[in-house]
């Protein structure tokens, strides 16, 4: 941090797992000790790592990290809230970017899947209805950046966050673009 200028305000970061496996969040945590540097620079808003229930309820978020594609109605509602409350929205991981392996269900009928797994379609209104197809998030909201990988390497998270914290457009180093 530059000693001659005042400390910049902390950035507000929200994260979420939609139709994800939480593996992208684990890969974020794989930045290890760099997490201590990170929490000096950012505050976390809604995230599986905090207790905040609603994204950007009091303060607009600077960065939203979205893991997972869209498989049900609640995913869509949460994604739209993230888009509305986050200045920069990042699709994180193969699922958010392409639908990922969960999208392998797209050639099957969702009713048939429910029938064969549960013997009936669970019908409590508390449960979000599954979508006909698993969708990548860019088909529902605009995304600003994407971090490919299943999961993205920890160094790719670190580079993206450092770029965004410095106000640079994130351009991943060649070795950090992986899809598997």
């Amino acid at each position: 941090m530059n000693a001659s200028s005042p400390s910049p305000r902390k950035l507000r970061v929200a994260t979420v797992s939609l139709a994800g496996c939480f593996g992208c969040h684990m890969s974020l945590l794989d930045i290890d000790e760099r997490l201590f540097d990170l929490v000096e620079r950012v505050d976390f808003d809604r995230s599986p790592l905090t207790d905040i229930k609603t994204v950007g309820e009091h303060d607009r978020c600077d960065i939203g990290l979205v893991e997972g594609g869209l498989c049900n109605a609640e995913n869509v509602e949460v994604l739209r809230a993230f888009r509305a409350r986050c200045t920069v929205l990042v699709a994180v991981g193969a699922c958010a970017i392409t639908g990922g392996l969960p999208a392998l269900r797209n050639h099957l009928d969702v009713g048939d899947i429910m029938q064969s797994v549960y013997g009936r379609v669970p019908d409590d209104p508390e449960l979000p209805l599954p979508l006909n197809r698993v969708l990548p998030i860019h088909e529902v909201v605009r995304i600003d950046h994407a971090l490919p990988g299943c999961p993205p390497p920890a160094d790719a998270f670190w580079q993206l966050l450092q770029d965004l914290m410095a106000g640079r457009t994130p351009v991943p180093a060649p070795g950090l673009i992986r899809y598997d």
Partner: peptide
């Protein structure tokens, strides 16, 4: 295909997916 996309700096799909069956 994968390595060409990595070398081209592809991070996202840009278009709608077609999901062929």
């Amino acid at each position: 295909l994968q390595v060409q996309a990595e070398r081209a700096g592809m991070t996202e799909l840009h278009f709608e997916v077609l999901n062929p069956e």
